[in-house]
Design a protein around this nucleic acid. Structure first.
Lengths: 224, 224
DNA sequence: GTAAATAGTGATGTATACATAACTCGATAT
DNA sequence: ATATCGAGTTATGTATACATCACTATTTAC
């Protein structure tokens, strides 16, 4: 394995574990264990964990260690409220800065999204999640603002804590039998394509809010 | 000195140096040097620097070190565009969540701000900067959203790279001889007090944009 | 005289040894 | 029986030694 920079290597390895749901909320990430399994010393692992804490992907108890944050309805509300608004900003900004190539790329993603098989299987779900991620982060990138993109990436990943609740969303069909996800995404891209900043922002906000509401409905059913 | 946690101690010490303009853009921050001057080993210093890089307060060249980011008109545009919109969000959210105590606190700050002596002296300028910081970050806190607050703090501090251009802004008076800064702040607090989210957001966006435009004017004058 | 090669210097990158504090669990006292 | 004290265990906190790479300056070849 060609590993030019162990800090970065460790960071990527660990965040992939986190975002891939290899840990449960409350699980501790032991420096020694991670170091051993990645085949390096504690130093770069420790460095990576520090960054993940700073970014809010992990919580930390002093002299105890780093652990996966515990999800809560309140945190979910904060995450999705922030995400709704931040992504509203990136979408609007994307409508101002998108090139032809950018827009082609977005249409391509929606095409792929529509073709994902009926998402009963775990594989199809993963495929869907990946395309969805790509869609949202592409728009952030197109916004052409380093800082908004940074915040958008952050809050998007942060919302992944809650993503395993999303089965319902991925399978939902509207009255004409079409998947609702690609439909909403299409509308957003159209607005961007038409350089309609306000509409792009509004549609994105609406899209994220719907996602949240479906999540929350499901959650209430699960926990009450 | 009671230092329970050296990582944190180093972080705070270094970020204070950065925000206090102890370094010039492009300056390298040497681990060895900082460690020596803070009286601790390279380890916690290194940890702190890593976080500061992750947060965008420092840039990094591999195997070379961390340095103060170079300001540029383009970066300034990105910073202030993001700040304008993020602070627009926090102001709007603050208008929904502010308690009586919160609003009293904001009025208090404006009172102090008005009383700051004619800011010719360096001391008065510093005083002004501190109150201004307190004002903006208080509103972020009142927004009651952990993530928006985090982003707001970050982008606010990030804009400090440019703050030393701001003399003009602090001294500017309107046609009736009043300082423009407190006047704009007053209008924002009134909107929050009246629970007018949209107006609070708009006024805050406008306020930040004016700040940027004055900065940029001054900058153009200095550099062209 | 100029350019390329190279040795020297000083910083970061990495591993490891030791210090310290939190948790565990059992023993003892009430 | 329960509560408290304390020793043992283990993971983090910190310092340091060594490795490595980037830069610099000097030397050497043309």
């Amino acid at each position: 394995m060609a590993r030019k920079n162990l800090d970065e290597f460790a960071y990527k390895a660990i965040i992939n574990l986190i975002l891939g749901n290899h840990f449960k909320p409350g699980d501790f990430l032991f420096e020694t264990e991670l170091a051993a399994s990645l085949g390096l010393s504690r130093t770069p692992v420790r460095h990576a964990l520090g960054q993940l804490v700073a970014e809010g992907f992990l919580d930390k108890k002093k002299k105890k260690g780093c652990f996966i944050p515990l999800p809560s309805p309140e945190d979910a509300r904060h995450v999705f409220y922030a995400r709704e608004n931040i992504e509203g900003l990136t979408a609007a900004s994307a409508a101002r800065h998108a090139t032809e190539t950018d827009i082609d790329h977005l249409y391509l993603l929606i095409g792929k999204e529509k073709k994902v098989a009926n998402p009963g299987s775990q594989k199809a779900k993963l495929e869907y999640v990946t395309i969805n991620e790509n869609f949202h982060l592409s728009i952030a990138k197109i916004s052409q603002n380093k800082y908004l993109e940074q915040y958008c990436r952050h809050i998007f990943w942060r919302s992944h804590t809650y993503i395993f609740f999303f089965d319902k969303y991925y399978t939902e069909l509207d009255s004409s039998g079409q998947k609702t996800g690609p439909k909403q995404h299409s509308a957003i891209v159209s607005a961007i394509d038409n350089r309609n900043q306000e509409k792009a922002g509004n549609l994105m906000r609406q899209h994220v809010r719907i996602t949240f509401e479906q999540l929350f409905m499901t959650w209430q059913l699960n926990f009450n």
